[in-house]
């Protein structure tokens, strides 16, 4: 049972860039209703994909996180970016059911 991880400017390198498994980083903000609706689905997926994929959440409202939001050119949320071996390989924008997200993730990384 693995819950999502909170990603911050401090742990970004360790948790995201140096992650051994692919990691999906959800750039979100508390004022964004679609982001909040994405939340439970991401928690479920995090448990379902335990060991194959990590899921992290980065709150763009926190000032120290805003450099990262700018670096990855976040202009629309929910915005989920998939990182593999330290590289950002795919972006998912907008609310979607967790099943669709799982399928899309499966096309980009090996989840079997």
């Amino acid at each position: 049972m693995t819950k999502t991880i909170e990603i911050t400017a401090e742990n970004f390198e360790d948790e995201v860039l140096n992650s051994k498994v692919p990691i999906l980083v959800d750039f979100w903000a508390p004022w964004c209703q679609p982001c909040l609706m994405m939340g439970p689905g991401l928690e479920d997926l995090s448990e379902e994909l335990d060991g194959k994929l990590k899921i992290g959440k980065l709150n763009t409202e926190i000032p120290s996180n805003q450099m990262l939001a700018a670096k990855y050119q976040i202009q629309s949320i929910p915005n989920m970016k998939l990182f593999k071996e330290g590289k950002m390989i795919k972006t998912f924008i907008g609310l979607r059911p967790k099943e669709s997200l799982k399928l899309e993730l499966g096309e980009a990384v090996d989840l079997s």
């Binding site: 004022w31 964004c32 949320i77 929910p78 915005n79 907008g94």
Partner: peptide, 17 residues
């Protein structure tokens, strides 16, 4: 340009501008 300047939710994205 969806998510790269095109948005359908001002409340979600205004802060990025």
């Amino acid at each position: 340009f969806l998510g790269k300047g095109v948005s359908y939710c001002a409340t979600c994205d205004a802060a990025f501008y």
